[in-house]
C-alpha cells in the first residue's frame, strides 16, 4: 500500500474529512434496500444503514444517524469501500477490518482508507463506535 496511508497526519485528516463530510449520508425511501437500525450496541450512537444488494453485488450503501467522529467516519469509509464489491469481496474486507479491531493480523491493502481506524483499539471502549456501521452491513450481507 502507499506509504501515504501510514502517515498519522493523513489518517487523522481522513477521519476528520469523513466526519465533517460523510459520504452516502442520506437514507432513501426505496423498498429494494435492506435496512438496519443500530441503537442497542451502545447507548449513544444511533445510526441506520441501508444497502442494496443485487445478484451478489453491493450496488449501494447509505447511512444516517446521530453518531460520534469514529462511528460516522468508519461508516462513511465503509460505505465507499464496499460499494460495487461482490459479497465475497466484501466479506473478506470485513473479516480483515474486524481483525484489525481485535489486534489480529490483517491485510492492510484490502482495507484502503479504513486503515485510518487502525488505532481505535487504544481507546478500547470506542471499538464499538468503529464497528457499529460495519456490523449493520455484515448483518445484511450475511443474510444474502
Amino acid at each position: 500500500m502507499s506509504n501515504m496511508l501510514k502517515d498519522p497526519a493523513i489518517l487523522r485528516e481522513l477521519i476528520m474529512d469523513h466526519y465533517k463530510y460523510p459520504r452516502n449520508h442520506e437514507l432513501v425511501d426505496d423498498d429494494s434496500y435492506d435496512s438496519r437500525h443500530m441503537a442497542s450496541d451502545s447507548c449513544i450512537d444511533d445510526i441506520t444503514v441501508q444497502s442494496k444488494i443485487e445478484n451478489g453485488i453491493i450496488k449501494d450503501i447509505r447511512f444516517d444517524g446521530v453518531a460520534c467522529t469514529i462511528s460516522t467516519a468508519s461508516t462513511s469509509i465503509m460505505s465507499e469501500l464496499l460499494k460495487g464489491k461482490s459479497i465475497d469481496e466484501a466479506k473478506k474486507i470485513m473479516e480483515n477490518y474486524f481483525n484489525m479491531m481485535d489486534e489480529k493480523p490483517y491485510d492492510e491493502e484490502l482495507l484502503e482508507e479504513a486503515i485510518a481506524m487502525m488505532n481505535v483499539h487504544r481507546q478500547a471502549n470506542r471499538i464499538k463506535c468503529a464497528t457499529i456501521g460495519w456490523k449493520a452491513m455484515k448483518e445484511m450481507i450475511d443474510k444474502e
Binding site: D45, A67, Q123
Partner: peptide
C-alpha cells in the same frame, strides 16, 4: 464535539465523566 468524543478525550487526561443521554 460529539459528547462521546469529548468523554474519550477527557479519559486520556485521567478524567472520568459520562457521555450520552444518561438514561
Amino acid at each position: 464535539v460529539f459528547a462521546q468524543d469529548a468523554g474519550s478525550y477527557l479519559n486520556t487526561r485521567n478524567i472520568c465523566v459520562r457521555s450520552g443521554n444518561h438514561c
